[in-house]
Design a protein around this nucleic acid. Structure first.
Length: 941
DNA sequence: ATAGGGTTAG
């Protein structure tokens, strides 16, 4: 055995040197010998080349053909030997490549690497190609270096160009010591500046393994610089991430004359794709056009990607459209940029175009489309793409699976998610870290926390993304203690929480109403050197708004701005919701103008939130204007618009919007029907209400929710069909909850039906014993009948349940301040002035026939006392204040936190006549618009 | 050239 191996070993090298004058190649190294002039090196200096005179037999020999035909190692070796006799410099590169490939195929790394080292100095072969070839056969770069060292130890002397190549490998593998040794040898032999290939390799090595400054110094000291050296110094700077310096060298190069390589341009554009480099990138685009590089496909592809990464979809499309020649990469780039911007439909169009051009989409194309659908949550379309790629004979890879898992990550699709998990296992895709983390996240998002945990525990090398998925899942579910525990577990494993970890916690605390805790997490972030970003603040804003903590939310928003964090579309959407809930129209308008200035108006969420804000702030005109300005109206914007008409009780218009929406091809969802039924409810359109309630499930497949039922009960009850409402409650498919009975009770209150009211009250005492509104309605009902004992009984019951009387307030925004009028407690500083004006108004009103309506007063006091209390209603004060303070013609807008009484309604009508002013009075989800003594609700509410 | 975790309206 030993014998054999030693034979093989000897054989390995001897056969390679068989017909070659090895000494000449490797020892006798004058700089002339290793100069760039290959023709001389390979022909004149070798005796064999003398025999390369065309002979009849040599013309019949086709080394490449023969090599490719070899079926065993012996024949490869034989051909190798024959090849050396018939060296033809034009074919040498290919022969060398082919030889290496064939040797590698037979596992003969030694032969292959020797060809590799031997072939190079004399041919313009791309060393990178060959290294890739070797890598393809599993030969690692370090083995190439090992071979090199072995050859060197045997006394082989390499010329500068081979050494340059080895230096490049040293740079990639960070073999600093070997690199230094090689450099030392080069200096000793005076080869340091012998060849620009040596110089550029040195720059590359120093740039990567020592410092960029050192590489730049080598460049500065280099006496002669050709294209190669210039391109190299740009590349070295690019690789080190100093793109500014790279651009500077690139500019200098333009003035000095050398020509940029395509690859340099491509890399330069790639690096300039980052935000900071974008301006430079644009200028390089100018160079590209001037230098005629725009005919180069790869460069144009890089331009497409650069524009796409910087949010310039149109420019990227322009580059694409201007290309005369396109390859698969070009199409893939433009498809990916379309999907990235959310235009998956456009991308699908491109796919068709691509196929008509005769280009077959590859896995990358399909994956781009998959990810486009996945990020939009369009699981069906994503699965459609999966089918198409499979029909095309392709197999989904880890990237496809990641996107698919993202697409099915919603509670209803757990089965699909599990099926994909099965596919992962069957096809051994578990090794991929993206697959693992998206699996964890899929189980989190399908509310399958235990599964997520199991999958996560199975992961080896748990990464921060997996941890964060778990933490966010627990946070989201309100399991904040578990989330905190997971975070400390993660820290124990040596992984530092990042902004995402923290934001998940901020979001969890904020969503579950713990604003203080959420703010504390923000503080903790800062302590740990992680800066809270716009998402952290938006999370708190969203939490506050979900919990009705609107005024706190505004404080948070101001704090955020003080900390120098500027809002994005999501923040603004949240803020608009808050402003809408507070009916702060003035502030809402300011935010609207902010959106216009900052180009946020195109965002679908922002536009919808604006419609919603205007509707909630009772400015239907502005809501309509924004709504009709939206180009591709999302479903939610239609829903908001319909809801806006519902609030104003403008039934016909609301239904017209709904009809227009259907005509526009939109599919109504559950919320659409809540809005439509609200329209019917608030406009007394009982017949239409029934119609849409039936159509909802029969034609549109929307299953009625408790909200829809509440609308129906409210609609029937308010319109006086109390018995029908009662029957509806008895027969409805869902269990009636407190909102149902509350709506019913409120109808009983309007129609003074004590018997049915008591029936509702019986249930509400169980279902909702802490809601003061129910108690107030009962007090109202009993006091109307003068049943003061019962009133006292209810009041007692409130004490027992520790239910406080609802705080009542109204407010009005004048300029930038909000004036709040409370029913109890702090009096308004201008109270005297307000009452003076109010009584003046009342005396004028009385001349026109106004009689105070004290029916809403539930106190057992004298009539004159009742009237006095009546005049103190907060909405009256707020309206009067508006009439005094608000200049101009704009309507007076007052918001009240609870229902208004009939007397205030009447007073508002008189006010609108006497002061010739429109008044908009908002009570929760309903708006009264008073003009010339009439109200938009036609007195039915 | 494609893939993973945190925020947004009704």
């Amino acid at each position: 055995m030993e014998n054999l191996s030693s034979v093989t070993c000897r054989h390995r090298y001897s056969s390679l040197f068989l017909h070659q004058p090895q000494r000449r190649y490797f020892t006798n190294h004058s700089s002339a010998c290793c100069s760039l002039d290959i023709k001389h090196a390979s022909f004149e200096s070798t005796p064999i080349s003398k025999s390369l005179e065309p002979s009849s037999s040599s013309w019949d020999f086709h080394p490449l053909k023969e090599l490719n035909g070899c079926t065993n190692l012996v024949s490869v070796k034989a051909t190798h030997a024959r090849t050396m006799k018939f060296l033809n410099r034009f074919e040498l590169e290919f022969i060398a490549k082919c030889l290496i490939t064939r040797y590698l195929e037979f596992g003969e790394f030694g032969y292959a690497s020797s060809v590799f080292f031997m072939g190079f100095p004399r041919i313009q072969v791309s060393w990178r190609d060959l290294l890739e070839e070797m890598e393809h056969y599993g030969v690692e770069k370090y083995k190439v270096l090992e071979e090199f060292v072995q050859l060197q130890n045997k006394g082989v002397k390499f010329d500068g160009v081979v050494l340059a190549m080895v230096l490049r490998i040293c740079a990639v593998l960070m073999y600093r010591l070997l690199g230094f040794t090689i450099h030392g040898g080069l200096i000793k032999r005076g080869l340091e500046c012998s060849d620009t290939r040596v110089v550029s390799a040195l720059m590359g090595f120093y740039g990567r393994c020592v410092s960029l400054d050192f590489a730049n110094k080598v460049f500065d000291e280099m006496p002669k610089r050709d294209d190669l050296v210039w391109n190299e110094i740009v590349m070295v700077n690019l690789r080190s991430g100093n793109w500014e310096m790279a651009v500077r060298f690139f500019r200098e190069m333009q003035f000095s004359g050398p020509k940029a390589y395509d690859s340099t341009m491509v890399k330069l554009l790639q690096v300039c794709s980052n935000k900071e480099g974008f301006e430079e990138g644009r200028q390089i685009h100018g160079f590209v056009l001037r230098l005629g590089f725009d005919s180069n496909v790869s460069i144009c592809n890089s331009l497409i990607i650069m524009y796409s990464r910087n949010g310039k979809l149109e420019s990227s499309r322009e580059v694409f459209n201007s290309m005369k020649e396109r390859n698969l990469s070009s199409w893939n780039s433009v498809v990916s940029s379309s999907t990235k911007f959310g235009y998956v439909d456009d991308a699908m169009g491109l796919l068709d175009e691509m196929e008509t051009c005769g280009l077959k989409p590859d896995i990358v194309t399909w994956n781009s489309l998959l990810s486009g659908y996945a990020s939009k949550g369009l699981s069906r379309n994503a699965i459609g793409i999966l089918k198409r790629l499979q029909i095309a004979g392709l197999k989904p890879n880890t990237s496809s699976i990641s996107s698919l898992l993202q697409a099915v990550a919603e509670p209803g699709l757990l089965k699909l998610g599990k099926a994909i998990h099965g596919y992962v296992i069957r096809n051994q895709l578990w090794y991929d870290v993206y697959v693992k983390t998206t699996l964890v996240d899929m189980y989190i998002k399908t509310d399958c926390l235990p599964y997520a945990r199991i999958v996560f525990d199975m992961m080896d090398g748990k990464n921060i993304v997996g941890w964060n998925s778990l933490i966010s899942g627990h946070s989201y579910a309100g399991l904040l203690k578990d989330a905190e525990a997971l975070m400390s577990g993660m820290e124990k494993e040596g992984i530092k929480p990042d902004a995402v970890t923290w934001n998940s916690l901020v979001f969890g605390y904020a969503t579950w109403g713990k604003t203080e805790k959420a703010l504390a997490v923000i503080g903790k972030m800062k302590e740990n050197g992680v800066m809270p970003n716009v998402l952290s603040w938006t999370a708190i804003l969203s939490g506050c708004s979900k919990n009705g903590n609107f005024r706190n939310a505004l404080k948070v928003f101001i704090k955020m701005q003080k900390e120098g964090v500027s809002p994005n579309a999501a923040t603004i959407s949240c803020l608009l919701r808050i402003l809408g809930c507070l009916s702060l129209l003035q502030s809402g308008k300011e935010v609207h103008s902010f959106c216009l200035r900052n180009n946020l108006i195109c965002d679908a969420y922002v536009a919808t939130a604006l419609v919603d804000m205007y509707a909630k702030s009772a400015d239907l005109q502005s809501a309509t204007e924004v709504f009709y300005g939206i180009k591709n109206k999302p479903l939610a914007s239609w829903n908001c618009m319909i809801m806006g008409y519902a609030m104003f009780g403008r039934g016909e218009e609301g239904i017209a919007v709904f009809t227009a929406m259907l005509e526009a091809g939109m599919e109504p969802d559950a919320i659409t029907f809540t809005s439509v039924l609200s329209v019917c409810k608030n406009s007394g359109l009982v017949r239409e209400g029934w119609k849409y309630f039936d159509l909802m499930s029969s034609q549109y497949g929307v299953i009625p929710t408790i909200e829809h039922c509440t609308c129906m009960v409210d609609m029937l009850g308010r319109s006086g069909y109390l018995d029908e409402a009662w029957d509806f409650i008895q027969t409805m498919p869902l269990k009636p909850d407190a909102t149902i009975w509350g709506a019913f009770l409120s109808s009983c209150k309007i129609h003074r039906d004590l018997e049915l009211a008591e029936a509702a009250w019986k249930r509400l005492q169980v279902l909702e014993p802490h809601n003061p509104a129910n108690y107030m309605m009962m007090i109202n009902l009993y006091s109307n009948e003068n049943r003061w004992e019962d009133v006292e009984h209810i009041r007692n019951s409130m004490r027992v349940h520790r239910v406080r009387i609802q705080a009542l307030w109204s407010w009005i925004q004048i300029d930038h301040t909000v004036q709040v009028f409370y029913a109890e407690g702090k009096a308004h500083p201008d109270e005297g002035e307000i009452y003076f004006e109010l009584y003046k108004l009342v005396s004028e009103m009385k001349k026109l026939g106004y009689v105070p309506d004290t029916s809403c007063m539930h106190q057992d006091v004298s009539e004159s006392e009742k009237e006095k209390l009546l005049m103190g209603h907060t909405e009256k004060l707020a309206m009067t204040y508006g009439l005094i303070k608000q200049k101009g013609k704009a309507p007076i807008r007052v918001v009240k936190n609870t229902n208004i009484c009939s007397d205030c309604h009447t007073v508002a009508k008189y006010m609108s006549v006497l002061r010739n002013r429109e008044i908009v009075l908002q009570e929760g989800a309903r708006v009264h618009h008073f003009r010339n003594g009439k109200c938009s609700c036609n007195d039915s509410w």
